[in-house]
Amino acid sequence: MSGVLQVGSYTFHSRLIVGTGKYASNEIMREAIGESGTELVTVALRRVNLNNPGEPSLLDFIPDNVRILPNTAGCHTTEEALNVARLAKAAGIGTLVKLEIIGDQDLLWPDPVATLEATKILVQEGFTVMVYTTPDPVLAKYLDQAGAHAIMPLGSPIGSGQGVLDVEAIQRFKHRVSVPVIVDAGIGSPQDASLAMETGADGVLINTAIAHAKDPSLMARAMKLAVEAGRLGFEAGRMPKRQQAEASSPTAGMVGR
């Protein structure tokens, strides 16, 4: 894989981040994570079920070489998100957090005001903050100035599989922020992942597209290859587009002409 993904002090050799939600079983999830080649997976924080306190821990199904990225999914206010982030840190798995504060429940669209406010506070508290955000380039600049360690615009609504609706947003972000830009949410197929990477994203975060594939392990591998291909394509630099054809074979020396 070309290069590394650097988020704060953390280095990753895969540019694919995988979510751990929605799998039919922990075993299927573990296999998919392995096939994806990821070194970073998201997890959520929820109340222990007191009626089944001994159920196996999700963490037991995550390979040792894979780091945990706790999210604040489900939070609707700055206070809620700060609480979840601090609890995750107290659970003793490091300073990484994926900040996600929802402002519209139907679209699971980020609340930009609360997100910026929480970013500032979490950065001051020493977290490594990866921020789920709208594809707004001005907000991205503010998040960068606030010290976010990665900025993660949505491609399309979470779990929708609509792909990256505004691909240009990736380039707008890349021209304006100093930290990695990771497309989070909406990736539905390998071509979506590849397009995001080819457009210049530093990484992609994928959950539903893998977990809800007919064969999650096979899709995880497809996404791995798509992310790699897209990244290599970006680094290689694509040819310019033309309005008209340009022959690939010599135009001189045609037989009988």
Partner: peptide, 27 residues
């Protein structure tokens, strides 16, 4: 929030409101 190192020393009292959370699958 109570750090894990303080689980032994931190007392609980009648009517305390307690949250116990763990990591689950999520995106």
């Amino acid at each position: 929030i109570i750090g894990r190192a303080d689980f032994v020393s931190r007392p609980v009292q009648d009517h305390d409101a307690i949250e116990i959370v763990r990591f689950v699958g999520g995106g």
